[in-house]
Design a protein around this nucleic acid. Structure first.
Lengths: 220, 220
DNA sequence: TAGGATCCACTGGTGGATCCGT
DNA sequence: ACGGATCCACCAGTGGATCCTA
């Protein structure tokens, strides 16, 4: 399938998937996915990405580069999102991405298609796609995301990486991001020494996506 | 097999392999290698490395970290080495490796066990291991290697990467090093811009290893 | 012959996220 | 519910070198 040419086309495609089960969608793509219990992290995002015509160029800044739009699947229960949402890695090298205006995280969050996945049934094949929501932050919302970003990036820039915890940030937080606890990436201490620290990524707090999916303009 | 505890033990093990065929050595290691004509680049180095008790930690600066010794297999014909010898990649990031004294290439060349492989027969299984030579450069030899190193590193440091060619260097040269022509790594131009260039590695010229294997002290 | 191009196995990092103990 | 830990597939980069054409 070709990538969607317009944002409206992307939304139309995603809307057409609402109500279908993931097993059904995977089958119509010819994707074979094991029934492997719960070892399927990340699988649904890839199924949806392909079902919508994305996923050809993984080096890009967006899932749909031509329309500068990011796709995020969100697991939801009766009360809305049940989990935080991974955005991107925190670049400890590459200082041009340490300014909000030119950051990966801002680029990705500037236009996001949230696709809810109902997770009430235990078997992933029976889980159903929800109604999509196209989101772009209001100026007021972006100001808060920027403040969260600046706080943690400021700590890293000051060589105080060890003070960065997932407790920081009203909507955007930083948490470890690695296949296991063994990976390390280079950063610099206050004294200027190069030390190794665990790789981290930006995440949207559950409370943020819950509010957005209820009413995109209700925040802050 | 445990790694050799001393340099003498490494030399003794290598000497014991002299005269055996590669097929024989591979079989006694339980290694299965396809008969795949000439698609076996790099295979012999790995066979010998395992046969001598190395190869457990690929992140190290040396093949035998405990004794700070590097292993190099050298294809030889009746007139000696027939090919140049790869040493290591040229680090375009990591300025601490751009000084000869702290460079990877100096560390690797400070003690090398050269193991010749007779390549006169076309079938690699029939090729025989030659008599090993333990080599450390004399002060005069090292001065020339350093001069070769400084010349190319100086060009990269000055942002003149495009002037670096395999023609430079009396004994140590720089050549492309990549799986195909498509790989790129970052460097900086004279004007300070970041541009992409092909990854490169340090190689010992054939004329150098030919002379060393004839008489390690004959040069310069 | 030598400078530039290429080959294979392996693995660590990345992108997609969810798991799970407190 | 939250913060830290973890899971899988994929792929580019690395380490081991030799190929190949002018």
């Amino acid at each position: 399938m070709d990538p969607p040419a317009t944002v409206d086309e992307l939304v139309a495609r995603a809307t057409a998937l609402a109500g279908r089960t993931l097993g059904d969608v995977a089958r119509s793509l010819g994707m074979t996915v094991g029934d492997d219990g719960v070892r399927t992290k990340g699988k649904f995002g890839q199924i949806l990405e392909r079902a919508l015509g994305g996923g050809e160029s993984s080096k890009s800044e967006h899932d749909f580069p031509a329309i500068a739009t990011e796709l995020k699947t969100i697991p939801i229960g009766p009360r809305g999102p049940v989990e935080s949402t991974y955005v991107c890695t925190l670049p400890l090298a590459g200082s041009e991405h340490l300014a909000w205006e030119s950051s990966w995280v801002r680029a990705k969050l500037s236009r996001v298609l949230f696709v809810p996945i109902w997770v009430e049934v235990p078997s992933w094949r029976e889980r159903r796609v929800g109604r999509p929501l196209l989101f772009s932050p209001t100026a007021a919302q972006e100001a808060i995301l920027k403040a969260d970003f600046d706080e943690v990036v400021g700590l890293f820039g000051a060589g105080r990486a060890e003070e960065v915890t997932a407790k920081l940030g009203r909507w955007l937080q930083v948490r470890p991001k690695a296949a296991d606890g063994s990976a390390r990436t280079a950063t610099r201490t206050e004294a200027g020494e190069i030390v190794l620290t665990i790789p981290r990524g930006f995440y949207l707090r559950t409370r943020f996506t819950k509010a957005i999916l209820r009413d995109p303009a209700a925040l802050p």
